[in-house]
């Protein structure tokens, strides 16, 4: 079998630009549904900070901040971060309370490829908020042995 040089040169570009499959989207939706337990989730209040262009997917700094005074009456119970195209949709789930002071979380994560990240927060009144961010990854994690 012969593969033309043109096809080989085009291959990395195709990898970068390949759209998420329906299965990826469904898996992310299922993970979010598991987090919310079927409650409606709105965009807003959550800020997910991550560089839009990531050079190395092996350690990507992210931080999540939720707008809330973190009092007994109004605080975040849980923050979850989810991804679309890693082998598993979950990244991290953390529990908070009035003693947290701020609804803030930072960590370093792995990204297998360019994809969407979703940060979701559960408030103590049972409402859910989220933010979705698209990230482009030039060197992927998980591929090299």
């Amino acid at each position: 079998m012969t593969v033309s040089r043109r096809v080989l040169l085009a291959a990395p570009g195709a990898l970068l630009l390949s759209a998420p499959t329906r299965a990826d989207q469904q898996r992310l939706a299922a993970a979010l549904l598991d987090f919310t337990g079927g409650q409606p989730m709105r965009e807003g209040r959550v800020r997910l900070d991550v560089s839009p262009l990531v050079e190395n997917g092996n350690a990507v700094p992210i931080s999540v901040m939720v707008e809330t005074p973190m009092t007994t009456a109004d605080h975040v119970r849980r923050i979850g971060v989810f991804n679309e195209r890693n082998p598993q949709p979950n990244v991290i789930t953390a529990q908070f309370g009035p003693r947290s002071g701020r609804a803030f979380l930072a960590t370093h994560i792995r990204l297998a490829t360019s994809q969407a990240l979703v940060a979701a927060a559960e408030m103590n009144d049972g409402s859910f908020w989220s933010q979705r961010v698209e990230v482009i990854v030039t060197l992927a994690a998980c591929i090299e042995g």
Binding site: N90, T93, G101
Partner: peptide
Amino acid sequence: YDGEVVFNAAFSPAIAANPFIAFTII
């Protein structure tokens, strides 16, 4: 801290090697 769990997090394999976590407490 102070007799209570003030923060806890569940990590998945998507957390990078040498896991780093930052958070706040009162």
